[in-house]
Structure formats: structure tokens, C-alpha cells
Amino acid sequence: MSQEYVTFVRRLSQLSEGKQTLFIKDLTPGPRKYDTKLVRAELSKTASDGNTLWVRSETGYLYPQPWKIKILEELPPYVAGQPWQDVFAAMLQAK
């Protein structure tokens, strides 16, 4: 059964197709809904298979078209960085 996730971006243009590392939240109903994972995943705007990835902006705006996501690897749920550092910048640095 297809699972659904949501991720947050500063701008939609900053989300790219292909292999990406990103924080996602599991939308499976139940007491663990919205649990966060950091994953390496294959993202696609157009693929017909894979799980559903909803995308929201930094104001919580929900982009109407979901993407597809195939999780390749689950990583520890954090990145190296100092408090108040931009998480997206820290992820780029880690790359």
C-alpha cells in the first residue's frame, strides 16, 4: 500500500528530482503520525510508482501536486550543525 509523506522547503524551486537527502514526516494515521525521518531518496515529479510526497513551503503552503518518493536509505534523524544554523545549509555542507 502506498504511503504518504510530507516535506518542507523554503522554495519549491530548491527541491530537485533525483537522489536527495531530506527530512520527511510520515503521514500514516495513528499516534506516530508526523514522526520525522531523514532519508536518502529518489524523488520524481512525474513517476507513476513510489510513495506520495506532499510538499509544503516555509509558510506551510501546500503545493497542489504531490511528488513521488522512493526511500533508498534511512539516516539518523539529524545533521551535523550548531543550534540556530540553517538546516538546509548544513545538509548542503554535509553533501
Binding site: F8, L38, S57, E58, T59, A80, G81, V87
Partner: peptide
Amino acid sequence: LADRIAHEGPFGEYPGYRSGTMAEGV
């Protein structure tokens, strides 16, 4: 944590808007 961070926010805050503070927390 002093050396690890993760995604936080956004949140509908006290000024009455969710104005975009995100991913810069602890």
C-alpha cells in the same frame, strides 16, 4: 545538542501568522 540539528517548524505563531520561521532551531 551542541553539534546536531534537525528540521523545526513552521508554526502558526503569536503574531497571528505562520510567517516562515523554519529549520533554524535547536
